Structures are given as C-alpha cells and as structure tokens.
Amino acid sequence: MTLKLNDKIALVTGGTSGIGLATAQRFVAEGAHVFITGRRQAELDAAVKTIGRNVTGVLGDVSKLADLDKLYATIKEQKGRLDVLFANAGGGSLLPLGQITEEHFDKTFGTNVRGLLFTVQKALPLMPKGASIVLNASITSIKGNPAFSVYSATKAAVRSFARGWSVDLKDAGIRVNAVSPGVVPTPAYELLGLTPEQVKGFIEGQAQNIPLGRVGTPDEIAKAVVFLASDDSSFVNGTELFVDGGMAQI
C-alpha cells in the first residue's frame, strides 16, 4: 500500500489534542515526520508519547512571533524543509454582542487570525514547490450562532485567506485550502465557558440539525486534512472543504 505522505515533513500547530492530535497521528500513519506545537509542556509531552514515532514536539504559542521563529528554526535545523502545514491552532469562547470585551476580541483574533497569518508567512521559506497548506476554518463562518460572533468572524477571515493566498502562492507552486469542521466534540469545548451538562446539551441539540444525525469525530476531520495535504488533491486549490455531516448545506 502506498502511503499518502511518505517521507514528507509536516507541521501541525495546536497538535496536542482534538483535531490537531488526530491529524498528527494520521500524518505519521501516512509516512510523514510531524512537528507539533502546544503551549503547555506537559500536554505536549503527552501528545508526543501518544503519537509514538516520527514526531517532534516544539513548545510555543502561535500568537507570539518569537515562538514561531523558534519553531521554524528548529524545523530548518532538523529537517531543512516543510512539505505540509496544517495551521490548526485556534480557539474561542462565548460572549454575546453587548458583553464583548477588548481582551476577548484581541485574544481570539490574535490566535485565530494574526497567529495563523504569521504561522503561514514564516513557513514559506521552508516550503518547496508542490507543498500544501491547510487552514482550519469552521462552518461557523457561514452560520449564525448565538454569542459566537467574534470566533465566527475569525473563521471567515481564515476562509478568505485560503482564497487570497492560493493566488499569492501561484508562482511558488504551493496549494492552500481550508477545512471547515462542523460539530466535533474535543477538549476545546471545555473552554467555551459552559458547564459539562450545558456542553452535553449543546452537542445533543446540534446533532438534531445534522443530516447524518450525529456529530463528528476528530479523526474524521483528520482524514479530510490528509486528503488536502496529499497529492490526492493535487488539483484542489483555494477551496473550502466542509466536513460537517451536511450541516452547512441545509
């Protein structure tokens, strides 16, 4: 069986849990050596242990440009190039209009937009022709959700980046696409400011609005990212792949 990412060098930001960790595991299973980032050393070490092989953990926060410089210096020193970038790090919390603070806005945009932009831009010197960039967006960019407008706006920006950068990188021969997950329970849901009971109720309620009748799993998103990262999608560029059980289509 031919591995989809054999001998590729890949990076997954925010790779310590959820979709990031599942994708890093899939990348390794498909033959890649993967660098993952995380902001907490204990969680980073645990993720590296879970992945088990062909993985390097680099402590860092994508919203801090010095951390990004350190990350890419490490990749350059150890591997000399980067074939696949999954810009996954991000997050958000619930605050309705009327209660949004500067701190909430700056933190969400700082990671999801500013951090993602410079994650990609600083990677470019290491990326050869034929490389692939996958941005983690969300169906929230096109669907209204109460108290989630700031996060949703950041993901709309991510979708726009995929379009614009696919043109900017035309001459470099680097593809840029976005994956937009639907409702996929991960540890990040615990950061929304909801109680465990409220999270459970939210997930159950959302499942009723999904044509497949259920929520997704991190590994189902990871499989889609592997497709966009590999030569299987060699003529796919600037697009948004919804992985949501059909939720965004109704």
Rank of each mutant, 00 (worst) to 15 (best):
L192E: 10
L194T: 00
A178E: 10
N177S: 14
E197Y: 06
E190R: 15
P181Y: 08
K200H: 07
L191T: 13
P187L: 10
Y189L: 13
L192G: 10
L194Y: 00
G193Q: 03
R159G: 12
T186A: 04
A178I: 03
K170M: 14
A162P: 08
A172I: 13
P187T: 11
E197V: 02
V167Y: 13
E197C: 06
E190N: 13
I174W: 00
P196L: 00
L194C: 04
V183K: 10
L194W: 05
G164W: 10
S166G: 06
G173T: 01
P181E: 06
N177A: 05
F161W: 05
P181L: 13
V179D: 09
F161I: 15
E197I: 03
T186Y: 10
V176Y: 13
R159H: 11
V199F: 01
P196A: 06
S166N: 05
G201P: 07
K170A: 15
D171W: 12
R175H: 08
S166M: 09
V184T: 10
A188E: 03
G182R: 10
V184C: 09
W165A: 01
Q198D: 03
L169S: 02
G164P: 04
V158W: 01
D168G: 07
L169G: 04
A178N: 12
Y189W: 15
N177Q: 09
V176C: 07
A162H: 09
R175C: 11
G173L: 14
S166A: 11
E190W: 06
L192W: 07
R163I: 10
G182A: 09
P196C: 03
T186L: 06
A172Q: 15
S160W: 11
V158E: 03
P181K: 02
Y189K: 05
V158L: 11
S180G: 10
A188I: 08
N177E: 08
G173Q: 12
N177V: 01
A162K: 09
L169I: 04
P181V: 08
P185H: 07
G201S: 07
A172E: 15
V167L: 15
V184F: 11
L194Q: 03
V183Q: 09
D168S: 12
S180Q: 14
G193H: 05
L192V: 01
